[in-house]
Simulated scan of single mutants.
Amino acid sequence: MFEEELSFLRRMTKRQLAMQILNFVMIISSALMVWKGLALYTNSESPIVVVLSGSMEPAFYRGDLLFLGMPNEPVHVGDIVVFKIPGRDVPIVHRVIKLHDERETGKQFILTKGDNNQVDDRGLYNPGQLWIHKEDIVGKVRGFLPHVGMVTILMNDYPQLKWILIGGLGLWVLVNRE
Results as ranks from 00 to 15, higher is better:
Arg142Asp: 06
His147Phe: 06
Ile166Met: 04
Leu171Phe: 03
Leu65Phe: 03
Gly69Ile: 15
Glu102Pro: 02
Arg95His: 11
Val119His: 07
Gly149Leu: 03
Glu102Val: 12
Pro86Asp: 03
Phe8Lys: 12
Val175Asp: 06
Phe144Met: 09
Ser29Ile: 09
Ile27Glu: 04
Pro159Glu: 12
Tyr61His: 13
Leu174Ser: 01
Gly167Asp: 11
Gly78Trp: 08
Trp172Asn: 02
Pro74Ala: 15
Ser46Cys: 02
Leu32Met: 10
Phe83Leu: 13
Leu169Arg: 09
Val90Glu: 11
Asn117Phe: 07
Pro159Val: 12
Val34Ile: 13
Ser7Lys: 11
Phe83Thr: 15
Leu32Arg: 13
Gly114Glu: 01
Val148Pro: 03
Gly69Val: 15
Gly78Gln: 12
Asn116Gly: 11
Gly87Glu: 00
Asn43Trp: 00
Asn126Thr: 14
Asn117Asp: 12
Glu73Pro: 00
Ile27Thr: 09
Leu154Glu: 00
Val173His: 10
Pro86Glu: 03
Thr42Ala: 05
Val50Lys: 07
Glu3Lys: 15
Asp101Trp: 00
Val82Asn: 03
Glu102His: 08
Ser55Ile: 02
Glu178Ile: 07
Lys107Asp: 00
Gly69Arg: 15
Val96Asn: 10
Met26Pro: 01
Ile137Lys: 15
Pro58Trp: 00
Trp35Glu: 15
Phe67Lys: 14
Pro159Phe: 09
Pro159Cys: 12
Tyr61Asp: 14
Gly78Pro: 01
Leu124His: 05
Pro146Leu: 04
Leu154Trp: 04
Ile27Pro: 03
Thr105Ile: 02
Ile153Glu: 04
Lys14Leu: 06
Phe83Ala: 14
Ala18Cys: 09
Pro91Asn: 03
Met26Ser: 11
Gly139Val: 05
Phe8Met: 07
Glu57Gln: 06
Gly37Asn: 11
Phe109Gln: 01
Ile85Cys: 10
Ser44Tyr: 07
Met150Pro: 07
Trp131Ala: 15
Ser29Asp: 02
Val173Arg: 14
Asn126Cys: 08
His100Ala: 03
Ile48Tyr: 01
Gly167Glu: 10
Asp79Trp: 14
Leu32His: 08
Val96Met: 09
His147Ser: 12
Tyr125Asn: 04
Arg142Glu: 09
Pro47Gln: 09
Asn117Lys: 13
Leu17Asn: 03
Leu38His: 00
Glu102Tyr: 11
Gly139Cys: 03
Asn23Pro: 04
Leu68Pro: 02
Ala39Arg: 13
Val141Thr: 13
Ile48Met: 06
Gly63Cys: 01
Val77Lys: 14
Arg11Trp: 00
Asp121Ala: 13
Lys162Arg: 06
Val96Lys: 08
Pro71Cys: 01
Gly69Ser: 15
Leu161Cys: 10
Gly63Tyr: 00
Ser30Cys: 06
His94Asn: 03
Pro74Lys: 15
Ile132Thr: 06
Asn117Leu: 10
Val51Pro: 06
Tyr125Asp: 01
Gln108Glu: 13
Met26Arg: 08
Thr42Arg: 09
Leu169Ala: 15
Gly170Ala: 14
Pro159Arg: 08
Asn156Arg: 12
Gly63Ala: 04
Lys162Glu: 01
Phe8Trp: 11
His100Lys: 09
Gly143Tyr: 10
Asp120Cys: 09
Ala59Gly: 02
Phe144Trp: 11
Met33Gly: 04
Asn126Tyr: 12
Glu57Pro: 01
Glu5Gln: 05
Gly54Met: 09
Arg177Lys: 11
Asn23Val: 02
Trp163Tyr: 05
Ile110Gly: 07
Val148Tyr: 01
His94Tyr: 00
Asp120Tyr: 04
Ser44Cys: 15
Tyr125Val: 07
